[in-house]
């Protein structure tokens, strides 16, 4: 996989757009079981990322991902800043400039491990890991873009009946059951946007 400058900028705009366009939805999910700032926080972070274009897309793919991660860490404000930011930073550290599929599988695994360490969490606790981990499994077992994107949507849906063990929603105990995890939803949106852009690159 090789992304030229135009493709890198398209990827950044797609990632940011997916979160910014759904900011109100993310906020209302977070109002149900969190503190209601997830949409606003993620929007602020990705607007800050957009503000670093066009220079951001001049960087190589790994450097660009690291820079996105650092901007999210510094600007998002909630716990999701360090969590999502760490994912991007570690992905950038682990990916070569022209990654193969195997490189992508290995790098996302490393990035997921870093998110687990940062949040001291595992899948099953109603966090973004409940999207990242199953989506990675589909990717690792050879699933195509469509399968990856579908799993991202379904995995976010599967957080609805879960009880939160980590994060603010865990204060609610059983009352966190019945609402989709906002962090899972934003992770799913980002994965959907990434897949769509990368498919576009592969098919054109």
């Amino acid at each position: 996989m090789s992304l030229d400058r135009v493709a890198r900028e398209r990827l950044v705009r797609a990632l940011a757009g997916s979160v910014i366009e759904h900011a109100d939805e993310l906020t209302s999910l977070d109002q149900a079981i969190g503190d209601g700032d997830h949409g606003l926080n993620m929007k602020r972070g990705f607007e800050a990322v957009l503000a670093t274009l066009p220079g951001l897309a001049d960087k190589s793919l790994p450097e660009m991902l690291k820079a996105i991660g650092m901007t999210l860490v510094m600007k998002v404000g909630g716990a999701s800043g360090p969590l999502v930011g760490t994912f991007f930073m570690e992905l950038g550290k682990a990916l070569p400039e022209q990654p193969s599929r195997a490189d992508l599988v290995a790098a996302t695994e490393k990035a997921i491990e870093a998110v687990k360490a940062r949040g001291r969490s595992e899948a099953g606790q109603k966090t973004l890991l409940d999207v990242l981990v199953p989506v990675h499994a589909v990717l690792a077992s050879g699933g195509d873009g469509k399968a990856v994107a579908a799993e991202a949507v379904q995995a976010a849906d599967r957080t609805t009946p879960m009880q939160a063990i980590r994060g603010r929603a865990s204060f609610l105990g059983e009352r966190s059951i019945g609402h989709m995890d906002p962090g899972s939803r934003s992770a799913s949106l980002l994965i959907g946007a990434a897949v769509e852009t990368l498919e576009f690159e592969v098919n054109t």
């Binding site: 860490v73 404000g77 909630g78 716990a79 999701s80 800043g81 360090p82 969590l83 930011g85 760490t86 940062r118 949040g119 994060g167 603010r168």
Partner: peptide, 9 residues
Amino acid sequence: GGAETNSEM
């Protein structure tokens, strides 16, 4: 939570 995660970061 966020204060802790951001502090560790």
